[in-house]
Design a protein around this nucleic acid. Structure first.
Lengths: 141, 141
DNA sequence: GTAATTGCAAATACTTTGCCACGTA
DNA sequence: TACGTGGCAAAGTATTTGCAATTAC
């Protein structure tokens, strides 16, 4: 029985990435946080703060994104957000435009059918989608 | 019979915005382009290029967004995108991760039901959503 | 006349890269 | 040992703001 970390590391190793402390702690941080996080947030997080430079985190995120281990999200803010891609899992998000709180929506995503239609009609390769709901949360309202 | 421009200008006037040449040409540019556009793109567009400063366009976009005349979109790029909000109309987008081409999807959006569920369950106010599909277009593949 | 709007230039924010030192395989 | 990685610092890109001059109403 492999831990989630071991599973991801294994995938990374298979892609030719080296197992460094920075990589390991970055992945752990992403695993422990099911919500999308920014570069700044990650670089200053508990596990990574003293450990490595922000540029290192940046380049790790870049590599992991290229290899499909994580995904880069838009989410409307100036900064980019990153989240671990769990095979078979998909999340949509609910975002408060007041306080910026981001939460994952657990309800089944209603978009897959349309996604298939688009794939067939347009011939786009590697199709995926991003769905976000924006609004004012009860506390901000 | 009002032109689309006149309709939007009327809404702007009602909100207390002044009818300036820059506002008019910005709105015309947005009306003529049904796709989301960036600040840089707008400021250097045919109608606005010689007419006004980029800061002016920036502030116009800001005001129009605050007043709900246009919407600011994420769309995954570093730059923010803006698009005119047509009452009763809603667009989702298909974006090529290769060449960056953005096209509006005409198919009916399958998300409204989920949006209503979220509104009821969470109590979020002013809920709206953004849905984008990403992939590689046939020409880039 | 008065308050909203604008231009210009400077300041931010966040990202991205160069270069050389370092560590993993 | 060799090549992927990392640190530090500088450069790049897009946004955001201050302030005085201008313009719509």
């Amino acid at each position: 029985m492999e831990t989630p970390l071991q599973q991801v590391i294994t995938r990374c190793r298979a892609l030719g990435l080296r197992r460094t402390k920075a990589l390991e702690e970055l992945l752990l941080t992403l695993i422990e946080n099911p919500r999308p996080m920014t570069l700044a947030e990650l670089a200053s997080s508990e596990r990574l703060a003293g450990l490595c430079d922000k540029a290192t985190v940046y380049r790790l995120l870049q590599r992991l994104t290229e290899h499909g281990i994580i995904r880069r999200l838009g989410l409307h803010e100036r900064a980019a957000y990153f989240t671990l891609l769990q095979p078979g899992k998909h999340s949509d998000y609910l975002i408060c435009t007041g306080c910026g709180k981001i939460e994952a929506i657990q309800a089944p995503c209603p978009v897959h059918k349309l996604e298939n239609e688009i794939r067939e009609k347009t011939g786009y390769q590697g199709l995926y989608h991003e769905l976000e709901f924006f609004g004012t949360c009860p506390r901000c309202a």
